[in-house]
């Protein structure tokens, strides 16, 4: 198998007396969709925030492209090419698609003045490269878009900057059937273009449909990392709810430790 682009080893994180993440190991590979699953409170959000630089880490290493890195600020993550699409999408409704995609990183001429034409061109190219067919104008106000289109714009915004790793937090949570299919197809295309994609989801259908690997968190530990095609929905649900399933997962002693 190829080298992991992002490799986390032995990550520990406590908030006061609460040990939220226990020796978490996780590897992300380019061209793969890794589903990060776990019950509420299992530590998914904390793990993502540690990687994003929003939370500091207590012990453990993060290696990006083989080099150890310290991410202590969200901007460090962005500079490395790690992008995050949070559930609330963070889009400004009063701006159009192009303006949102370039927000905070506008292309300028003479330092202060916006070069809107260039940005519009690039926004269109990015959406076209993701085979997005549902957006009829990149000059549309984001307020007028459907939930799926908004998700699409948020994802396109994340990959506009030649990013290498993209974290998607529940991208289909608020979407209907057709829009979910659309967004999942987009997630797959991102991976096919060589990005490492992390899909955080509660929806087993989505996980089974689009992911290559599943990492299940159980009370702050990685219960198991399995190939999606070698597992089943039942097994993942067992890993999420009890930390083990058959002979994979945590040992009974480990699983009980935090209860």
């Amino acid at each position: 198998m190829t080298e992991p682009i992002l490799k986390i080893t032995g990550l520990n994180k406590s908030f006061g007396p609460v040990h939220v993440l226990h020796d978490v190991d996780l590897s992300l590979y380019p061209g793969e969709v890794t589903a990060l699953v776990g019950d509420n409170g299992a530590g998914k959000s904390t793990l993502v925030k540690c990687i994003a630089g929003i939370n500091s880490i207590d012990t453990g290493q993060i290696a990006f492209e083989g080099r150890p890195v310290t991410i202590s600020d969200p901007r460090h993550a962005t500079a490395l090419g790690i992008e995050f699409v949070y559930q609330d999408l963070a889009l400004a409704d009063n701006l159009d698609i192009t303006q949102n995609m370039f927000l905070g990183r506008e292309t300028t001429k003479l330092g202060w003045f916006l070069s809107d034409g260039e940005m519009e061109q690039k926004a269109r190219e990015t959406l076209a490269s993701l085979s997005v067919r549902t957006v009829s104008s990149v000059r549309q106000s984001v307020a007028r878009l459907s939930g799926g289109q908004r998700q699409t714009v948020a994802i396109a915004k994340a990959v506009l900057w030649n990013s290498k790793v993209v974290f998607l937090d529940e991208p289909t949570a608020a979407l209907g059937v057709a829009q979910t299919a659309e967004v999942l197809a987009l997630v797959r295309r991102l991976a096919d273009q060589g990005l490492a994609v992390v899909l955080i989801s509660h929806n087993m259908n989505d996980v089974m449909q689009v992911s290559d690997r599943v990492a299940a968190l159980y009370l702050g530990r990685v219960a198991a990392e399995v190939q999606t095609r070698e597992t089943s929905t039942t097994q993942i649900v067992e890993l999420i709810t009890s930390g083990r399933s058959g002979d994979i997962g945590l040992t009974p002693a480990e699983a009980r430790e935090n209860i």
Partner: peptide, 9 residues
Amino acid sequence: YATGGNAEA
């Protein structure tokens, strides 16, 4: 405009 539309974003 962006700050007025969505300060968090």
